[in-house]
């Protein structure tokens, strides 16, 4: 599944990745804190929406992602 940055404010266009709590290839459970992101307003922990393997990180630490961008791909547990 594609992990997409959701709309969180009228003029919030982007958020910056502070750090990933997991490395590529690691298993994650649903609800685990996946990544910490920072907007102008606050910092946020994004919980993993599903259980599976974090197969790809598309927004690296320090990089900025736009609302709607896919920041990671999780291969769901069957």
């Amino acid at each position: 599944m594609e992990v997409m940055l959701p709309e969180m404010g009228e003029d919030i266009k982007e958020a910056t990745v502070s750090f990933w709590h997991f490395d590529e290839g690691e298993k994650v459970s649903e609800g685990d804190d996946l990544v910490e992101m920072v907007t102008d307003k606050a910092s946020f922990n994004v919980p993993s929406p599903v259980a599976g393997v974090l197969s790809e990180i598309l927004s690296q630490e320090g990089e900025t992602a736009k609302i709607g961008d896919v920041i990671a791909i999780i291969e769901e547990e069957k």
Binding site: V3, M4, L5, P6, E7, M8, E36, M37, V38, D40, A42, S43, F44, N45, V46, P47, P49
Partner: peptide
Amino acid sequence: MKPFPQWIKRQLPIKEINEMNE
């Protein structure tokens, strides 16, 4: 930007936010 102290942190549950936005 001033760094946020560690207590200025919230959860951002993607699925639920998208559902409500929808």
